[in-house]
C-alpha cells in the first residue's frame, strides 16, 4: 500500500508539544544557570504542570492519535516494531509508534514527578521555597531538592534520547518527524 499524506497531529497537540519543549528547556536552563532568585524557573514549572494536565485530558478525549489507548500497546507489538526499526525505510507510522509510546509515557511521568518534587522543595535559602513545601515534613522538603536534581538529569537524558532518535529517523530511516509536528501533515501507511 502506498503511504498517503494525512493530517495526523491536531493543532492543540502541536501547540502542547512545542510549548512543553520551550518551558522544559527554559526551566532546565534557568535551574542550572539562572539567577539566584528562581521565580522565572517557578513559573516555567507551573506552565509545565498546566501542559501536563492538558496532555492527560487530551489522552482521553483528544483526536485518535493523541489518545493513550491508541498508542499504548503490548510488549509483543513493541518487539515487532523494534525488530524492523533499523531498516533504512521510513516507518510511515500513523502516530506515536509502539516503542515511541514508551518514551512519551516516560517523559510525562518524569516531568510530573519533577513538577511534584519542585512544588515541595525547600533548598534552605529562604527565597526559592516551593509553594507546597510547608505541606510536607521538613525531611521530605529537603529530600525533594535531591529528587529534583536527579529529575533534571533524567529529563536531560530523555531529551537527548528524543532528539537522537529523531535524527536517527531523519538520516538513517529518511523520515522527517519534525515537520509533521509543525504542520500536522505526515506521510502515513495503515496496513490494516
Amino acid at each position: 500500500m502506498e503511504p498517503v499524506r494525512e493530517k495526523l497531529w491536531d493543532p492543540a497537540l502541536r501547540a502542547f508539544h512545542w510549548l512543553l519543549a520551550f518551558f522544559v528547556i527554559a526551566a532546565w536552563v534557568l535551574g542550572k544557570f539562572g539567577p539566584a532568585n528562581m521565580w522565572l524557573h517557578f513559573w516555567c514549572g507551573y506552565a509545565v504542570a498546566g501542559l501536563l494536565v492538558f496532555r492527560l485530558i487530551w489522552g482521553f478525549v483528544g483526536p485518535e492519535p493523541a489518545r493513550f489507548r491508541h498508542f499504548l500497546t503490548g510488549p509483543g507489538k513493541m518487539l515487532r516494531y523494534a525488530r524492523g526499526m533499523f531498516r533504512r525505510v521510513p516507518s510511515y507510522w500513523p502516530g506515536h509508534n509502539p516503542l515511541g509510546a514508551l518514551s512519551v509515557i516516560a517523559m510525562l511521568l518524569v516531568l510530573a514527578a519533577q513538577v511534584g518534587s519542585g512544588l515541595v522543595s525547600d533548598p534552605d535559602d529562604f527565597i526559592n521555597v516551593g509553594p507546597l513545601a510547608g505541606q510536607v515534613s521538613q525531611a521530605t522538603s529537603r529530600a525533594a531538592v535531591g529528587w529534583h536534581n536527579l529529575g533534571a538529569v533524567l529529563i536531560l537524558a530523555l531529551v537527548i534520547l528524543h532528539v537522537g532518535v529523531i535524527l536517527f529517523y531523519r538520516f538513517w530511516k529518511r523520515e522527517d518527524l519534525v515537520r509533521p509536528m509543525l504542520t500536522g501533515w505526515k506521510l502515513v501507511r495503515r496496513d490494516d
Binding site: 539566584a36 532568585n37 534552605d124 535559602d125 529562604f126 526559592n128 535531591g146
Partner: peptide, 19 residues
C-alpha cells in the same frame, strides 16, 4: 535583604551541600 542574603545561601549550597 532576604533576597540578597538568600542568594548567598544558595550560591554555596548549590555547589557544596549534598542534595
Amino acid at each position: 535583604v532576604v533576597q540578597s542574603l538568600g542568594g548567598t545561601c544558595k550560591a554555596c549550597h548549590d555547589n557544596y551541600r549534598a542534595k
